[in-house]
Design a protein around this nucleic acid. Structure first.
Lengths: 129, 129
DNA sequence: CTTGACCCTATAGTGACTACAGGGTTTATA
DNA sequence: TATAAACCCTGTAGTCACTATAGGGTCAAG
């Protein structure tokens, strides 16, 4: 199939697929007489793997690492697990950060009573505290 | 004070301060005979405002909007509140996203029992599901 | 005087895309 | 058959919010 269909099948943009190829995340596919890329199931499965990892917040570098582990053929589930746990920890930290942000924003917003007053506690606190 | 001291006082990098000036977030300061930037308290207070907004996850564009509201002199606390609430909502959505991510990662990781097995459920699920 | 810290401008790089320019190929329709 | 729109290609630049580097000037302390 051509790149447009692969994009549809995987929910990944055409341009992103080309980007992944340039970055070495996807191998170069075969080409037709017209120089169009031609993809088969292995490419599709690999791209779906990449997208799932990305959806889980893995960076491309981490995805690359995972793919290397798999393709090395000497994949150790312990290494994969370690990467997964490390990333899970990062996600939890990010959640914690955002929760702090949320709490502070909630507080600031709750002190807003709207209106056309020149004194806005939201702004005042950000300027002073 | 010079830029290095302003950086220290505000916890903001020298290069970031220059960047903010280029982006129009900070007004151009006066210069000394040596062409060094010279900052006073108004600049410091403004930069601290910018940093606090950034720490709360506001984009530079949103910061710019807030500053315009304030400097327009016709600031309406309702507008500020609206921006704050909208942003708070975005933060909550991001948290929800991350929570989903966390849950999925937790699930995948919990199925990992380590070891040198060629069958890694983590990888298998990402390739197949 | 020397040297290291500080300052300056201009420009490029980061990560993960996304958009655009300019041009070729395919497909569906009149 | 002709046409127009959709699709494909490569190369390059832009997005966002910084961050780093190159090359050069100024200041302050020893």
């Amino acid at each position: 199939m051509r790149i447009g269909e692969l994009a549809q099948q995987t929910g990944c943009q055409v341009e992103t697929i080309r980007y992944y190829e340039r970055e070495g995340i996807l191998p170069k596919p075969q080409r037709g007489q017209n120089n169009y890329r031609l993809y088969g199931e292995p490419h599709q499965r690999r791209l779906q793997f990449v997208r799932r990892c990305r959806d889980l917040g893995f960076s491309l570098e981490e995805v690359r690492t995972l793919l290397d582990m798999i393709n090395g053929g000497t994949q150790s589930c312990a290494e994969v697990e370690a990467l997964g746990r490390s990333h899970l920890e990062a996600v939890r930290e990010k959640i914690a950060d955002l929760r702090k942000m949320e709490a502070r924003l909630s507080e600031l917003v709750s002190r807003c009573h709207g209106g056309r007053t020149p004194d806005c506690s939201f702004v005042e606190e950000l300027f002073e505290s």
